[in-house]
Design a protein around this nucleic acid. Sequence first.
DNA 1: CGACGGGACGC
DNA 2: CGACGGGACGC
Length: 720
Amino acid sequence: MDGVGGGGFRPLSGAGGGFGANNHQAPLLSGQKRGFPFSDRGGSSPEHFDGGSFAKLFVGSVPRTATEEDIRPLFELHGNVVEVALIKDKRTGLQQGCCFIKYATSEEADRAIRALHNQHTLPGGAGPIQVRYADGERERLGAVEYKLFVGSLNKHATEKEVEEIFSKYGRVEDVYLMRDNMKQSRGCGFVKYSHRDMAVAAINALNGIYTMRGCDQPLTVRFADPKRPRPGDSRGVPAFGGPGVGPRFQPPGARAGKNFGDPMGDRIPPNAWHPISPPNLRPPSNADIRGFGGQLLPRSSDMAVPLNPAGLLSGIDGVADGSHLGQAVTSQQSFNQSMPQLQPVSQQISPFQKPVQSPQHLPPSIQYHPQTPASYAQMQMPRASLQQLGQPQLPHSAGQTPFSQALPSQQLLGLGGQLSVSQPQVHQTASSAGVLPTPLDINLKPHSVSIVPNQLRPPASMSQQLLPPLQQPPSQLAQMLSQQTQTLQASFQSSQQAFSQLQQQLQLMQPSNQGLTSQQSSQAIKPQTQWAGVVPQIVASTLATTAPATDVPSSKSAAPAVPLLTQAVAPVKCNWTEHTSPDGYKYYHNGVTGESRWEKPEELALLEQKHHQKPQVQQPQSQSIPHVPSAQQVRQTQQLQMQAQLQTQLHQQQQQQQQLQQPTLSSLYQASGVTGHQNVQDPGYTQLQVVAGSVSDPTRFQQGLQASQEWMWKNKPAGT
DNA sequence: CGACGGGACGC
DNA sequence: CGACGGGACGC
């Protein structure tokens, strides 16, 4: 979070007034054990007490050996420090590695946050200090934060890079990127603003529009769901604290205008995880957690079943550690096309590339370079982007057979050859998923080991391997590395998907396994309950309106400044879908506006009503109508038939792997060009070996990936 | 398609 | 220095 303050706010009028009213009584403003005796509601004017007006900061990553003398001067640089409080353990007396800094004004506190948060390491400290408002301070001072969820980030992007994207729409108060245990970004995170208008502007400008360099999908930007409370976190105020002013509730439709995307009406975000009927309105105390934890999180036990395929994998032979596999999987797709040597020439960018962005915000490396050889150009334009941008004007010299470059058949032996499913199966999958088979699909069919419909999209990078390698400038070497990385990732994904799918089938065939019924298993894999399957027209509308730029007149929508806000004009009635939060509570998301809300939108309710009057619509999970088997049923049947065969093949493959001495990916790249400029012998073969080995050693696979990816990312062109 | 870190109340 | 009312989805 370099350069991004963890705090910063602007006190609103009526500070401290209303927040507690709907939540709890004043003294509960969270853990203010001391320092909060001069409540402004106690009849005293806070400004008349030297303790009543202050702004307390929490400072983390303070060395346990630090003294006040080590700390105070640093904070004095940014304001008059009223108090420094080093926190010690009650029992042991040892410092806890944090402290509180009290300034007289929030302006000073803001300055300190901006100047110090993540930017200064105290002597003896392991990392930079964390400077933020103490729990409850923001609320007490009437501050508000508007937090956006951001998805489809480049997994190598830093907090600072994300901040740069969003700072165009207002000062970014905080950026938090979600990372896995290996510190690898999960490709999503949170961005905070202090003003609603900034957040709305960012949503309008970025959501579905701005594609980060190296990504094949545009950002998802929407107001964040309320944070799920962590068990045992008894202190603190609900993370989504609302402002202390304004009406408590507002009819959902009240703000149907341009500022869509607001989570809970105008200015009142939810302050509790449970949207409608909170089991307990005050912050839970420790006693509550112990005594009534089940009531506080009534359905959390429902989520005990594994939620991701990686979890299901943990029991399979040859895959000792499913969590590592999961990490490896999350890291793929991450680096699809960073081409350092491509010149970022914004003037040459086709209009469909970045229809809305101002030139300075165009991520350079993703931009289409007309002079790039066709084969490269194809690679630069991932399929998803092509579809989103409705690019009929892709150069025909390039667009004809984008991914149909020769795939030496031996490359398929290790994975595709053994695992690939029949073409009819793939076709079935494609059509049942509502995706028209395109030449791309056909060309890639040998690699479409994926059986699950939503895994249909084949590895878009498969054709990019076996480029004329080496003896090339470092820039092209980087490009080649990137492509090979993509290939490796895609192959790994394919194999992983095959494993995952196989495991799912095993679950289906062995209901007693782990006590999972087949239904539970499917729920675990696909926890979201979408109306998609139930209300077909909703699906259609979503599909029709999700692609952001389909309404851009393709070749001559020249002006990149043309706003794409027209995407908000939904030609259909309802873009809402029902989802289930991790705790099992339903909420509703508008696929067009990005808005999330707890209450069921009227549009959706109306649609549901309609369908209750027409009961013949088949429920997705219903197996009770045998006449017309659903596509899913067909797939299941076919999968079951293939399951035993696949299992045998997988075992064979694993045994082969064990007999071979596999080079690790990192060693491969160390030997092949990351550090030097040597040639890669038979990259296709080697790749297969690596991929095959990675199945049994996902950790090393991922480490190798990370190493090469980081190298490429760090050698990206400057200025972004 | 990814959903919330990490140290939290001394005198 | 005091620690939480009252309401209780809608299929």
